[in-house]
Design a protein around this nucleic acid. Structure first.
Lengths: 287, 287
DNA sequence: GTCCTGTCATACCCAGTGGGTATCACCGAG
DNA sequence: CTCGGTGATACCCACTGGGTATGACAGGAC
């Protein structure tokens, strides 16, 4: 009577994202009429109009925006439940596979902390198997939310820790990475203003969801590309201190005086009760 | 194929909580056989054993524990989606009802901050209607999670802020509330050790989920009861400073030197995107 | 051992409904 | 006006979620 079914949420989110019943139905692998009817039933049961069907397409009402947002969260929680349950399965038989723990880390982030963590944890008695899952730019949050990962290394202020439990692991300053020959590379320190506005070295633009923000800088989608472009003297980048580990000889690192410090946290879903996770966190905070 | 339905989660959580198919079925308002079958289907689809059916009853496997925990979170998120969407409905027509915002507060907590907040927010242009929802001991978390509330005033370290976004509003010390005539009431300050072990004034035991922790103190379930018992010289209590507002003449408040400070936060679900909520939070942080 | 009891699983049936196809009603663009 | 494209309606069917009756099995009483 008043309990929303997962299917209904999936349908509504599809329609709300596409703002088009036909495309949404196609995405869902079904025909358009039953989808229309389903959404109507949903609106009736909630007693709320979710969409305004005007000539030429559909738009969201306030309640629709709310359901899109809350529904995504609920769907994530549901798929997370399925994923984590599957992952926990089979770990019951005493001689069987051990618990597994999926740790999401930013691809290309400092390996030093990660290595120390994994080594220290593996030495613990009853340690679970840790699978390291490299994630794209700031994708750790989504991975924790929908259960692809159980725990993540996050970097404030780039990742938002909102909605997770976390412990602080490390704080570091930031550096500008410049082509070795560039005049600014001779400076002992720089400010953000210095590097954000170098005429011949525009800041690179990272790919976000397949699109690029506007600007003069080159378009990149991975760190190697960026390193290459810096080495070629085409751009400059700002990184946490620990990025020094992968610099090339063609690169020069200069500390930034006014860049916000980068704080690495270990974060996990607040409701988690996994013993293996607790062990990993304990190990991490002791490092 | 791999998407868990809300119904399945509800069924499984019921069985996992009751550890008994018959009682779970009764609670769900259905017969036992379809429930059994449903759980079997769920196990097949997840490819994981969730329950061990041994002689005389049922127990949870590791995967079952995981699904109980994650499933509860998912169910909460789903009912929250429904509740919040219903609440947001009807606020679209320009002359219609305004947005409503449900604020959960600890029943009996300081009204001063709350009053200031409500007054200041009501003065804002485009302020939503704020419905204040008094909640039992530490129940604000559940209310935020399942959508009965949109935002809450929480008091660290009693409430856990894990899983929510929050802003700090106020910090206060704690006081011991003693019967006015008691010898210790003459002291200028006390320590926690002083009040936790007064032979003639055992600390009261709050009702939690209908049960009481063991101990010598009287059993209580609301603040008035407690005030009464203190006034009668039967017990002592520890409260935040702001509790001074409701003390009786038969009560004496003595500051505690070593009690952890109580920090009042305003907290909300991390994924929330409500404008009304943002306004309330903005008002609160400006107080 | 034989009951009896309490538990979950199986067998079978039925109705409700989710999904499909065909079609309509509507609106804006030419 | 017609046409293309949208969402809604009408109608049908198969599937499956739920019900009842019953089975299988383990413990406890004796």
């Amino acid at each position: 009577m008043d309990t929303l079914e997962t299917r209904e949420l999936r349908y509504f989110v599809a329609v709300a994202e596409e703002l088009h019943f036909g495309r949404a139905a196609e995405r869902l692998g079904m025909a358009q009429p039953p989808l229309s009817r389903s959404i109507q039933q949903l609106e009736r049961r909630l007693g709320v109009r979710l969409l305004t069907r005007n000539r030429r397409g559909v738009s969201l009402t306030g309640a629709g925006e709310m359901l899109l947002n809350e529904g995504r969260a609920a769907l994530d929680a549901t798929t997370a439940a399925a994923r984590r349950t599957r992952r926990a399965g089979g770990a019951d038989s005493p001689g069987g596979p051990r618990n597994r723990l999926v740790l999401a880390v930013k691809a290309g982030a400092s390996h030093e902390l990660l290595h120390k963590l994994l080594d220290a944890y593996a030495a613990e008695p009853d340690a679970a198997d840790v699978e390291v899952l490299p994630s794209g730019t700031c994708e750790q949050e989504g991975m924790l939310r929908d259960g692809r990962a159980d725990v993540a290394l996050m970097h404030a202020p780039f990742n938002s820790l909102a909605g997770f439990d976390s412990e602080e692991l490390m704080t570091e300053g930031q550096i500008a990475v410049l082509p070795a020959g560039h005049p600014l590379a001779a400076r002992r320190t720089l400010s953000l203003a210095d590097v954000s506005d170098i005429p011949d070295l525009p800041l690179a633009r990272w790919s976000r969801h397949g699109a690029y923000p506007p600007g003069p800088g080159p378009e990149i989608h991975d760190q190697t590309q960026l390193a290459q472009l810096i080495a070629l003297g085409r751009t400059v980048a700002v990184f946490p201190d620990s990025a020094r580990a992968w610099l090339w000889t063609e690169h020069t690192a200069v500390p930034l005086t006014d860049a916000p410090p980068v704080v690495t946290h270990i974060a996990w879903p607040a409701h988690s009760r996994s013993l293996a996770l607790a062990g990993l966190v304990r190990t991490a905070t002791r490092l």
